[in-house]
Design a protein around this nucleic acid. Structure first.
Lengths: 242, 242
DNA sequence: GAGTGGTCTAGACCACCCT
DNA sequence: GGGTGGTCTAGACCACTCC
């Protein structure tokens, strides 16, 4: 019954459902009508409904709970300064609550080929994987690689502090940070960590932290579901340009 | 026949096809076997094959050409300095070829709600939409809003130069730039512009350029398919922090 | 005309949740 | 038990490309 014109049926159904969400006919936290009900109401087959719903799940508008229903995802994105991670603790009081969860520490080579672009070495390193919540929302899946020998005290600290802080407590001082910011479909690990579907867009921050010692630098990737966080940057401008 | 264990069939098929692409069994520029051939070879229904192929299209690994076949997408991502757009023309010689295509200039309000986060005004402005190629690849879908009256010479310049350059030639000098960098599923406009499917991840740069005149500032969004471009940033570090 | 991918359909089975 | 979403199947039709 979506009287919208043009395009495949599943697309028109998708637009109709999107419209209803925007108009607040389908509200956050409440389930949509079931696929069967929607199929009957809109006069299309259930398969077409599922197709439309799945497309809307992969764009983050909806999420399914098996055996319960399909829900409207809440959407409010935090904004964080890109150099948030860089200012000293004293200078940039942490306005955002950040907690580090389910940290896993292993000993392995860098596998993620994206880090090649930062000239990451191909040697076994200490690998720290963790999920970071910001303001109570699971937001960041972080994998970092340290050129360290294991050290119980350090491993302990890595559990609940950031890598940067843990290393700072051990006397390491960083000099420079190189970042690559890009987007990518969620990795399989991120899909599991956040419960997001295949292909879900993520914002990534690839980092290379350097110290005075050229043999000691930290590499890593922070993977962030697109609906959780945005980075803010403020730049003064030289005379002109683009 | 994918003997991989666990998970739904379409997922195992997806992994099998991914493996073949990684191992270069399916090469860039050549078509994969047809859905029917894959269905027979792998011993699953064609529908399951199409499901796997569609998932791989939305992650950018494959792309379909109707009536011809499904192909492996070429993948090489350009890296650009985030402040590329900010340095003066003299100081940062443009290493990357950039061409501006199919520019459309209109008069409208800012519709994209993402720009609200940059405190964009709700008044009609000159809106410039264009597709920008970098090094010969369609890479950026740019929409910018200028608080201007129409001006034939300007509209002319907007056609083949960047907004910043065109305004510079009219005497405008920018002071500061606020940026938001995030990810998002491709907008419908970007889907059309780049021929990418619904839900395709994009990297976005939302910008607010300010001049000395508080009533004159430029807002805009640059939308970039995730496989085209990454932003590089280099930062000196204050004493410590995360 | 033969091959391709895209759409739409019906129907069956499963795993899961709630009551 | 009765609801939900998820998977997998078969089959038909269309639009398109290529020969």
């Amino acid at each position: 019954m979506p009287r919208m014109v043009g395009g495949p049926l599943h697309e028109r159904v998708r637009q109709e459902i999107t419209r209803r969400v925007i108009e607040n006919k389908y509200k956050v936290g409440e389930p949509l009508p079931s696929s069967a009900a929607l199929a009957e109401e809109l006069g299309v087959s259930m398969i077409t409904i599922r197709r439309a719903l799945r497309d809307l799940q992969s764009t983050g508008l909806l999420y399914p709970i098996r055996g319960v229903g399909t829900f409207v995802r809440e959407r409010r994105r935090l904004i964080r300064e890109l150099d948030f991670a860089l200012a000293s603790v004293e200078q940039a009081p942490r306005l955002e609550l950040e907690s580090h969860q389910s940290t896993v520490v292993t000993w392995e080579r860098i596998r993620n080929s994206a880090l090649n672009r930062l000239d990451a070495p191909d040697e076994p390193m200490v690998c720290v994987r963790k999920i970071i919540s910001v303001n109570g929302t699971l937001a960041i899946f972080d994998t970092s690689y340290l050129p360290l020998s294991f050290n119980d005290k350090l491993v302990d600290e890595l559990g609940n502090k950031s890598v940067r802080e843990a290393l700072r407590n051990q006397g390491t001082r960083f000099r420079k940070t190189r970042l690559l910011i890009d987007a990518a479909p969620a990795s399989e690990e991120a899909q599991r960590a956040f419960g997001i579907p295949n292909g879900y867009p993520t914002l990534r921050r690839l980092y290379h932290l350097t110290t005075g010692d050229p043999s000691f630098s930290v590499f890593g990737i922070a993977e962030i579901p697109f609906d959780r966080l945005a980075y803010a940057v403020e730049l003064e401008i030289l005379p002109s340009g683009r």
